[in-house]
């Protein structure tokens, strides 16, 4: 791996830009994503930045069961993202369809339309859970890019213990 490539990979793990797409959700997950980026938890200290365009983003945060009307748009926006790209399904609806499973206009889960890297369940997941999910994804990214997590920042050495208030947080990272 050349020096430039190593530098790029390090930069990608250090500062993943996320992009938020509402694929028919109820807004609950959306406001919790914003709350995770806001002063109390401040995901931006990990270098995670919310951007407005899919072309700038490395990670797409999808919320909501995919409705029939939004499916082609979702696929188009996924195609617009530059490689390497990752998709995180935030919330029970995005993971499996949740409470809307079985409705006539709902596909049930983002993975029915586009490949998903990580799932964060919860209705809606608390900002702490979203932070933890983002942290787990960054660790997996570091592994894939061949970057030592400890090289990146001191906060990557010890996983931040989820606070007891968040209940059980199960963040699964699927194999790509």
């Amino acid at each position: 791996m050349g020096f430039l490539k190593r530098l790029f990979n390090k930069a990608k793990v250090k500062s993943p830009w996320v992009f938020h797409f509402n694929s028919g959700s109820c807004n609950g997950c959306d406001i919790e994503i914003i709350a995770a980026l806001m002063p109390r938890l401040d995901l931006e200290r990990f270098g995670v930045k919310l951007v407005g365009s899919p072309r700038h983003a490395d990670i797409m945060l999808c919320t909501g069961p995919v409705t029939e009307q939004i499916k082609p748009r979702l696929q188009r926006i996924y195609e617009q993202m530059a490689e390497p790209k990752y998709v995180v399904a935030v919330g029970s609806c995005a993971c499996s369809g949740g409470v809307f499973r079985g409705a006539y206009n709902v596909l049930g889960g983002v993975d029915q339309a586009i490949p998903v890297t990580a799932y964060i369940p919860g209705c809606p997941p608390k900002p702490a859970a979203i932070t933890y999910g983002a942290y787990q994804l960054l660790r997996v990214l570091a592994d894939m890019m061949g970057v030592e997590p400890a090289q990146l920042a001191p906060e990557f050495e010890e996983p931040a213990p989820p606070s007891p208030e968040c209940g059980t947080i199960e963040t699964e990272v699927a194999e790509i």
């Binding site: 959700s25 409705t67 939004i70 809307f100 409705a103 006539y104 206009n105 709902v106």
Partner: peptide, 14 residues
């Protein structure tokens, strides 16, 4: 609009 149409009213009947 209508991107968010999930069919809640129909689902509610069942």
């Amino acid at each position: 609009i209508g991107y968010n149409h999930r069919g809640v009213e129909k689902l509610a009947e069942s």
